[in-house]
């Protein structure tokens, strides 16, 4: 999950944030890391660029992008299904 945190920081240009500042189960949006709707789009770009994953159903977004852990689980599940 550390790599994923590093990728999130780079993709979202969170210059004053270090990977260890982001908790595995910390909410990414609003009261947690404070990301906004444009950041959500950038996270979709990150999944496509880094993991070749296209989020097929927009309604999955809130569940997938809830925390770093939920993102990591989604990536792992997707990779297992396409192995």
């Amino acid at each position: 999950m550390s790599d994923l945190k590093t990728q999130i920081i780079a993709q979202l240009n969170l210059q004053d944030t270090k990977p260890e500042d982001i908790g595995d189960d910390q909410p990414l949006f609003v009261e947690g890391l404070g990301l906004d709707s444009i950041d959500a789009l950038e996270l979709i770009v990150l999944l496509q660029q880094q993991y070749k994953i296209k989020l097929s159903n927009a309604e999955d977004g809130p569940r997938v992008f809830k925390t770093v852990r939920t993102m990591a689980e989604y990536i792992t599940d997707h990779q297992a299904q396409h192995a």
């Binding site: 979202l12 240009n13 444009i38 950038e42 770009v45 496509q48």
Partner: peptide
């Protein structure tokens, strides 16, 4: 050319 950046688009 690769993937359009939403963060730049705004």
């Amino acid at each position: 050319n690769t993937m359009a950046s939403p963060a730049l688009f705004v």
